[in-house]
């Protein structure tokens, strides 16, 4: 099952209410979602939870159909606490939302169980400084995925290689694909990776991936 994830740094200067365009919500959200925002006691977090749910579902949907386009209002979010369902023409995606004071994270899958995920970052770094260092975050998120997957497989992190095929991350070992569907995200000071284990077992590797 394809997995998608998205993390949003809630203190990133460019996602603050005063920084986003006044028509952002109208452009990004359905009428129903705008109603949710209007009723929310935590508008900032709800806004980015809705967005992260859409983006994570898009990342999963893109693996089902590489031609799918990210038209945010086409990914309709039905939010219910820390769970959501995203409805798109390609199907329905379950979304698990996690949040802390400084970030929200969404995990989308069509599977019944929550995919594995890891989040890392430096909450003490200033969000402005982190912005200028985001190039390094691309490598950091791959390192996070290497560590997480290698622990599941009981192998050294250096044995896991993360490559990109048509902007979709893939995990490999010795040039061979590893039995995971993978998604990576980074924003501001935070990076996150998510994975769904397939049932394919590779000889010589631990196959219990729960």
């Amino acid at each position: 099952m394809p997995v998608g994830n998205d993390i949003v740094d809630l203190r990133h200067p460019l996602c603050q209410p005063a920084a986003i365009h006044p028509r952002f919500d109208i452009r990004a959200f359905t009428t129903r979602e705008i109603g949710l925002l209007a009723a929310s006691a935590q508008v900032h977090r709800t806004r980015w939870s809705l967005w992260a749910a859409k983006e994570s579902a898009f990342k999963a949907a893109r693996k089902l159909d590489p031609q799918v386009r990210f038209l945010p209002r086409d990914f309709a979010v039905h939010l219910s606490g820390k769970r959501a369902e995203v409805v798109h023409r390609l199907g329905r995606f379950r979304v698990w939302l996690d949040h802390a004071d400084q970030w929200v994270h969404a995990l989308a899958s069509q599977a019944g169980e929550k995919p594995g995920f890891r989040i890392a970052g430096d909450p003490s770094a200033s969000s402005g400084a982190a912005r200028t260092a985001e190039e390094g975050f691309s490598e950091r998120v791959r390192e996070l995925a290497r560590i997480a997957l290698s622990a599941l497989l009981n192998i050294a992190p250096i044995e896991v290689r993360i490559v990109s095929e048509d902007r979709i991350p893939r995990a490999q070992r010795r040039g061979q694909p590893l039995p995971f569907d993978l998604s990576l995200s980074h924003d501001g000071r935070f990076v996150s990776c998510a994975w769904e284990a397939s049932r394919v077992c590779i000889p010589g590797l631990v196959c219990s991936l729960s």
Binding site: C15, H21, F24, R27, E55, L71, R73
Partner: peptide, 24 residues
């Protein structure tokens, strides 16, 4: 390395700066 959420803001800024409408 523009974030996709910020691309929404950019498109809206295009609309304002050039006085145009951009469909999704």
């Amino acid at each position: 390395k523009v974030n996709s959420a910020r691309l929404v803001d950019i498109i809206l800024d295009f609309e304002d700066a050039f006085n145009i409408e951009v469909e999704d």
